[in-house]
Amino acid sequence: MKIKRHNTAIRFTHWVTAMSIFVLLFTGFGQMPVYKRYYVDQLPGLAWSSNFLATLYLHYLAAMALIFISAYYVTYLIVSKRWDIIPRRGDFKESMQIFASMLGLAEEPENDKYLAEQRLAFAVTAFSVMALIVTGILKVYKNLPGMEFSVGTVFWLAQIHNLFTVILLLSVIVHLAAFLIKANRPLVASMFTGYIDREYVIHRHAAWWDKLNKEHREAGLTSPPVHPEAVLIAEQGKSCLDKTGNSS
């Protein structure tokens, strides 16, 4: 039995974002004279990487994709009002508890659709992307003929853009490193298929599970997204959590 976790719009957003950020990071680093010096352009298929204009225009193209998908996602959030990924009060404390539970020092909290640390990581990533888009657009304006920014503006635009590049790169690394933890791995598949095991939800996302069932009861639906016995299973799921703590 599977539960839908990521709809098409979210998977579309995720993968366009991922691919555009990958291209942006690669071509962005290529704006420094590194690929020639470190022989990256000697690798098969990467001869273009030391051509500053090639990487610049690829950077612009990928930036278009990222701006497109950012506008898409913000609009999606506003229209659909699905705020699951937005940080809440107490998330910092809760994510500390999750880290403590990994070390066996505390019980894992009952997680909603996203873990507190996921919501915080999302905020860092989203803010970095926003800062990079704003400074990036200003840098494109600067490159136009006839556009002359003051010396200080040019310097700080470059520094802020570079700083948030580093922050974004770190957040991408942390995001990927999360899958070193076995408990997180089923989420990789769900970002492709959209679906995740019901048992996983019951164990790892008890609060979301409750919410799903409540929504369905309120909507007067007799067939929940999960199973006719959803409520019963939810109770069992809870008791399973009670007994084993962060058993998942």
């Binding site: 719009a9 612009y60 898409y72």
Partner: peptide
Amino acid sequence: NILSGLLMAPVAGVLAAGIST
């Protein structure tokens, strides 16, 4: 083309999201 692409990108994003939602 680059500039108009960068300016059109958010508009296209909003429209596409409108259709999706």
